[in-house]
Each structure stands twice: as structure tokens, then as C-alpha cells.
Design a protein around this nucleic acid. Structure first.
Lengths: 231, 231
DNA sequence: CGGCTAGTTGACTTCATTCAACGCTGGTGG
DNA sequence: CCACCAGCGTTGAATGAAGTCAACTAGCCG
């Protein structure tokens, strides 16, 4: 199997595509284009017309928005298998955010008009896209909740938990992107994240470069609980 | 025209319904049900199966989420003409938030299965719902940006601006809901909002009960700008 | 080797929260 | 008709969490 054939397999397995009829899927798969990016590359720019539906194959893409003061605010991060720009592209709107690669990244994209046409003809595609959008709404609501109701340490702990497979006992992983990006995604400054990591040593969290070692996942969950009660 | 006929007119004029064929719209309109709520009433509860697509006819509905610590976090507020629960209902998922009336409120709702069936048969409805969802994504991204990149005063000023018709010069309006709810929606405590209002007297903002008087809208915009530069 | 980016650490500042007391207003019941 | 109470909002003083500024280290690339 060629690399691209594997990627097409991956596409097929994604929620967005798995419910499609073979014919509809084939039509989309025929029109795909693959791209590679390196850290800092801009994938789509805020304000541009959305021309493509994108899927992340490898790496991470950060969505940012230019604020009035010229600074960019990180809104969300997408990883492997996640779709982005699907709703704006199908609706023919403009991008309201900029998408940038946080490291080496591979993307597959398909032309907006092909997807839009297919969505008009195959309702299951329109519903699948709707389902994706709905999932994004939940994810954004989670973020808002975290920003409004949780302290820095809680957000950091939750982030670390999200990196570990669910379960108990010890765990090891790697940070998926730089600490600067992690800080921004949690609504923190880099210095604050650094201090938070230092504090969390007391609950068995060890960060060394990108390596993460957690003594006991259960303890982390309890700590999140404990911090809740304090507030 | 009976009151309900007027409401049906309003429905027809909403983005969600305006692109539908007369037949599709009639089908939906036949199945609607009207409801009234008073302050504090729960309209949908987090965790329940979504059975209805809802549209706010009058009043304001706040979406909240129960956090792990038992407190509720305000996620978003919907006003007249806004639809909610449309994507979860069509997809047959469970509500991830609770919806509560912030004051006297009128709602129109239609059964999820009717809308879902219609969406399957009329692609324009599926796309209209997608468009709504997409708009909600933008709105939530705005909120995240505000929470991450703006100070309390900036968020308050922006909120006040959003109440005024665009333009220059003086403006008067009313606060759409209680100050407690406004504070929560801006990610602030009530006391902080109160202090912010007090500070903003210096830029020509006067709040008296629910009455809002702004000396010059332009000045408010400039003040938001100025605060940006300081950060 | 130098220069760059990523990350850490310390001292200080500040914005917002917390806790607590108090004020206003509108409704209810004696 | 007045007294009392509850809900909403304001204000003050003290606290604390996160941001800012700045110096410094480690690793990496050319």
C-alpha cells in the first residue's frame, strides 16, 4: 500500500467520511490534494475565502485570531484525524481564523465546491459535517468553561490527563507541541505554565523537555477534585 | 393576524428557515409548539436526550454547564430569533448544557425527528442548520478570544457597544438581563462588573438600574483601543 | 564559534476575587 | 398601612493568582 493509499484509508475511517456511500466517498477521494508544512507555515489566513476542506494527517495545527491590538490569540488546536474549515468551506464563507502549523505537518484537502456539491446531493454528508461542527461546538464550550471556572493548575492537570490513555497507575507521554503553544492554548503565559509544572512536581508530575512522566494518574484526578473544593 | 401567526412569520424570516421551500417550511411549521417560561425555569437539562429544536421568540436563555465542583458556568446567552439545540437535536445526541430562562421568555419548539427527517430529504435545511452551527462556532471563538486577550473593562465596553446600534454620538439602551447574568457571561464576578461600571463613568458611561446612557459611542471605541495599547 | 529560540527563575506589580457589611426596592402578610 | 424580608446590587479592605520585566541557561543550527 502506498503512503497515499494509507492516508485515503485514514480518511475513510474518520467520522466525517465513514458514513458516506462508496460512490460519494470515491468522488471526494478523487479530488484530494496532499500538502506538507513546517513549523510556522500559514495554512489558511484569516479573511481569505475558504476554498478547501482540510484534514490533519500528521502534526498539529493551531487556529489563531488577530485581535484588535495586533496580537494573535490561540483559539484551538487540531491534531491527527481532525477536520477543519469544513463548515465555512461548504457554506462559501471566509475564514475567521488563521491556521498555522506548530511543527512538521501533513494535510489533505479537497476543494470546497466538490464537497459542497456532494453535500447537496448526499444528505448523509451534510449531516456528517453537521456532526463535526457540533463536536467542535462542544470542544469550544469546554474551553470556555475551563477559562471561566478553572485555575491555571487545574487546566494544566486536565491537559496532562488528556494526553494519557484513561486508566490508573503510572503513565508516560510526550508533550505534543512546544510549551509556548501549550501555554497559549490553556490561556496562560509561558512563565506561568513553567511555574505550574514546577508546582505539580508535588503530585507526581515530572516534565523533562517534552517527556512527561506521571507517577499515578489517579492522584492527578484527585488533585483536580481537591482544587475544585478549595474554590 | 393572530399572535401565533406573527410568530410563524418571524420563524419564516430567520436564517434557519428563510431558504426552505414552502413545502418544507409548512411541514415544520405544522409541528411547532409554543411555550412560556419565567425567570429561573429550566428549559432543557444537561444530559437529557435532545428532543426539540428551539427558537427564542422573546426574552433571553442562558446556557450553563455544571462543572465538576458543582458550580454552574455560563457558556452563552441566546436572544430573540436565535435557535438552539438544533444540531444536537438533529443528530439525536444528548444536551451538553442546561438552558434556563433569564426572565420571562417565549420559545417555539419543533420535534427533533421531524426536523431530522426534513433535513435528510431537503438538503437546504441541512445546510441552513450547518450555517447556524457555524455561526455559533464563530460566536464561541469570539468569547474565547475575549476571555484570553481582554481585560474586564474591555469586555464590558464591548458588551455595551454590542447593545447600541452602530454609529456615533450619544446612545441609550437597557441592559437585557440582570447584572449578575451579565457578569457571568463576561467571565466576571458581580462585584467586578459593578466596579467596572463605576470606573467607566470617566468615559461617559452611565448605568442606572437597567438604563444605559453613553455620551459618545466613538469615545467608547477609542477607549477599547487605548486599553489595547496599554497591554 | 556565534547567534537564535525555547524555557526557567526571581522580584515585583496588578487585576480581579473574596469576604463582609450595607443599601435599595418590591412584594407579602400581619 | 407598615414591617419585614429576599433578591439584587454596591462598596471597602484584604488577599491572591497570574502577568510583567528582566536576567539567565540550555540546546540547536548554520
Amino acid at each position: 500500500m502506498t503512503p497515499q493509499a494509507k492516508d485515503i484509508e485514514l480518511l475513510r475511517s474518520l467520522p466525517l467520511f465513514s458514513t458516506l456511500s462508496p460512490a460519494t466517498f470515491a468522488r471526494l477521494a478523487d479530488s484530494v490534494r496532499f500538502d506538507r508544512y513546517v513549523k510556522g507555515d500559514t495554512i489558511v489566513r484569516q479573511g481569505e475565502k475558504a476554498q478547501w476542506v482540510m484534514v490533519v494527517l500528521e502534526g498539529y495545527v493551531k487556529l489563531t485570531r488577530l485581535s484588535a491590538n495586533g496580537e494573535e490569540t490561540l483559539i484551538h488546536i487540531f491534531g491527527r484525524g481532525e477536520t477543519f474549515a469544513e463548515s465555512v468551506a461548504v457554506l462559501g464563507d471566509n475564514h475567521t481564523t488563521t491556521a498555522e502549523a506548530t511543527g512538521p505537518t501533513r494535510i489533505v484537502r479537497m476543494p470546497a465546491h466538490v464537497v459542497a456539491q456532494a453535500a447537496r446531493e448526499a444528505p448523509e454528508l451534510a449531516l456528517a459535517i453537521l456532526s463535526e461542527s457540533s463536536a467542535k461546538i462542544w470542544a469550544l464550550m469546554d474551553e470556555i468553561e475551563a477559562l471561566k471556572a478553572q485555575t491555571a493548575d487545574q487546566r494544566v492537570l486536565r491537559f496532562l490527563l488528556s494526553l494519557c490513555p484513561p486508566g490508573h497507575g503510572a503513565a508516560e507521554t510526550r508533550l505534543p507541541y512546544t510549551k509556548g503553544v501549550i501555554a497559549a492554548s490553556l490561556g496562560l503565559k509561558q512563565e506561568t505554565l513553567s511555574r505550574s509544572f514546577a508546582r505539580l512536581k508535588t503530585v507526581g508530575v515530572e516534565i523533562e523537555g517534552r517527556a512527561v512522566r506521571i507517577a499515578d494518574v489517579k492522584v492527578i484526578e484527585q488533585e483536580i477534585e481537591r482544587l475544585n473544593r478549595l474554590v
